[in-house]
Computed example of a mutant assay.
Amino acid sequence: MEMYENIYNSLLKVKEKNPLVHHITNYVTVNDCANIVLAIGGSPVMADDEREVEEMVSIASSLVINIGTLNGRTVQSMILAGKRANKLNIPVILDPVGVGATTYRTKVAKKLIEEVNFSVIRGNLSEIKNIAGIKVVTKGVDTSEIGDTSSKMEEEKEIAQQLSKKLNAVIAITGEVDCISSEDKSYYIANGHKILSKITGTGCMCSSLIGSFCGAESDYLMAAVAGIASMGIAGEIAYEKTKNLGIGSFKASLMDSIYNLDLNIYKERSKIY
């Protein structure tokens, strides 16, 4: 079966199951994450108080943890929810936004990984390098990585596969060309458009899409590929429809494009190898 067919089958599972995706995420992009989950066919919930997160995650299909706007109150909630999800075999996705930017952020990411077993960890190259213990300079919550594309792709594959083996998690490195890896298998995705970096939250939304697919698809490598490819393809379509308008129109069109994904779109546009 072709990869685009596998992705579409995963999308059908999402739409059929309507997975409840529990988020403990950042307040900058929480609304966008909720809406992207609805657009793909899932059901979002944004509960982050430690008095209810264990109960809430118990009825969820997946848990997305995003450290974009850290505070001491939600860190404990993340750990409680993550541990409860692990006990119930509910997949947990980590978006380590800006790890490496501050000592506190790096310490929290390390603690989360020590306390919780993650099914998928998605970040840019700078963030994943920091998770892997490779020293790198981080520019706020954005990557500072530049370099030759082909050599960087090989580097990403090696880092991702080694980290996947160490953490028993799918490692997804998103960028100009995305690299998604398990211990011994990697996929590259060349979909997307640079305008995605011009609006805040596209990385967070991508993690929410992965959470949606993980909530319906038992193959977490496929779920990560499906979520990231869907975001990239939708970005391309949205740009084509709004390139003479602006980023506000682009953002609205991005949601529409996620909502309207189908087999023909995946077949015509998927750039996965």
Rank of each mutant, 00 (worst) to 15 (best):
I210R: 02
I199Y: 02
F213H: 08
S212G: 09
S218R: 14
G211N: 05
S230E: 04
I199S: 01
G215Y: 08
G215I: 01
A224Q: 00
G201R: 11
M222D: 15
G211I: 01
V225F: 11
C204Y: 01
I210V: 15
C214T: 06
A223N: 03
C204R: 03
E217M: 07
S208V: 02
T202I: 12
I233N: 09
G232P: 03
T200K: 14
A229F: 10
S207D: 09
G201T: 06
S208H: 02
S212F: 09
E217N: 15
A226Y: 10
A216Q: 07
S207N: 08
S207R: 05
S230I: 08
A229K: 07
C206W: 00
F213P: 06
I228C: 06
I233Q: 11
T202H: 13
T200C: 11
A223D: 03
A224M: 00
M205I: 09
I233G: 11
I233V: 11
C206A: 15
I199G: 00
G211K: 02
E217V: 14
G232W: 10
L209A: 06
S230Q: 12
T202Q: 12
T200E: 09
E217I: 07
S230P: 11
G201P: 07
I210T: 04
A223K: 00
M231K: 13
V225W: 06
A223T: 00
A223R: 00
L221M: 03
F213Y: 14
G211Y: 02
M222C: 14
G227R: 04
C206S: 15
A229L: 08
C204H: 01
A229W: 10
A223S: 12
F213S: 02
G201Q: 06
G232Y: 11
A216L: 10
S230Y: 12
A223F: 08
A216S: 13
A216R: 04
G203P: 04
L221C: 03
T202W: 14
M222S: 15
A216P: 09
C214K: 01
I199D: 05
M231E: 12
M205K: 08
G215A: 10
C214R: 01
M231Y: 13
A229D: 03
T200Q: 12
A229V: 02
M205N: 10
E217F: 07
M222W: 14
A226I: 04
C206L: 11
S218K: 15
C204P: 02
S208F: 00
M205S: 13
D219K: 14
I210C: 01
E217H: 12
C204K: 01
A226C: 15
M205L: 08
F213I: 05
M205A: 13
I199P: 01
I233E: 08
A229M: 05
G227A: 03
D219E: 09
G211F: 03
Y220E: 03
A216N: 08
G232H: 10
I228E: 05
I233Y: 11
T200N: 14
S218G: 09
